[in-house]
Amino acid sequence: MLDLFAEDDPWQEPLAAGALILRRRARDITGQLMQQIERIAARNPFHHRITPGGHRMSVAMTNCGALGWSADSRGYQYSAQDEFSGQGWPAMPQTFHRLAEECAREAGFAGFNPDACLINRYEPGAKLTLHQDKDERDLRQPIVSVSLGLPAVFLFGGFERGDATQRVLLEHGDVVVWGGPSRLRYHGILPLKAGIHPLTGAFRFNLTFRRAR
């Protein structure tokens, strides 16, 4: 009998109510996405932000869109300008916006219109501790997260920092969407293991789309 689905076709993997992994969903456009990241970083270079507690984040970041997310001694906030350059953030590429809107719709969140895209760059050893995305004005809007490059272990927990977490391997082209009853779940990334990816070299990149305002 003919197998109608190739072994590497995209598929959906539920995480929790309102949370879904779209495996390999962005795989066919990862080259375009990386080209856009390079253009954005040429205008707004990656920086290691300093947390309100004075710690240097191991993840380097930049932003695109009407608003950008940042951390400094004042706390965590969205702003229309980068505090390093004093300039507005680069515009969000249409390729980014379309991917985020389509993935949100496929996960059950129609009408998602992101105005901010946080771009994180991980090198070996970089991590993201468990946290909630709660600086956005409308928490009814989902989060859409796109993985590029080296694989990473995604932690997806509960509504308290000490709750048990799922450990899920995210690979090149995977997209995670969470919202609704899962919108305020804690999540993070374990320290990145060293490796070389054909497209991104020794790095992992992550695009996180939000509706901030």
Rank of each mutant, 00 (worst) to 15 (best):
A212I: 05
T62S: 11
G157L: 08
D138T: 02
E13Y: 05
S85H: 05
Q36M: 04
H187M: 09
E171S: 15
L130E: 07
A91K: 09
G111I: 08
S85G: 11
F203T: 13
Q32I: 09
A152T: 08
E123P: 00
I29G: 02
S79Q: 12
A100H: 07
I119Q: 05
D138R: 14
P181M: 03
L2K: 13
M61H: 00
M92W: 05
Q132F: 01
R121M: 14
V146S: 03
A152Q: 12
I50A: 01
E83I: 05
T208Y: 06
A164S: 13
D72R: 01
G31M: 03
A66D: 15
L20H: 00
A212N: 10
V176H: 01
A66Q: 15
R49W: 08
H47N: 06
E136G: 09
H97C: 14
E13C: 08
Y122E: 10
F154Y: 15
D133V: 10
D3V: 03
Q94C: 06
M61D: 01
H187P: 10
K134V: 11
L2C: 01
L118P: 11
D28T: 14
R167C: 09
R121K: 15
P181N: 01
G54M: 04
D115F: 09
M57T: 12
E123N: 03
A91M: 06
R213K: 12
R185M: 02
W69S: 07
F96A: 10
D72V: 01
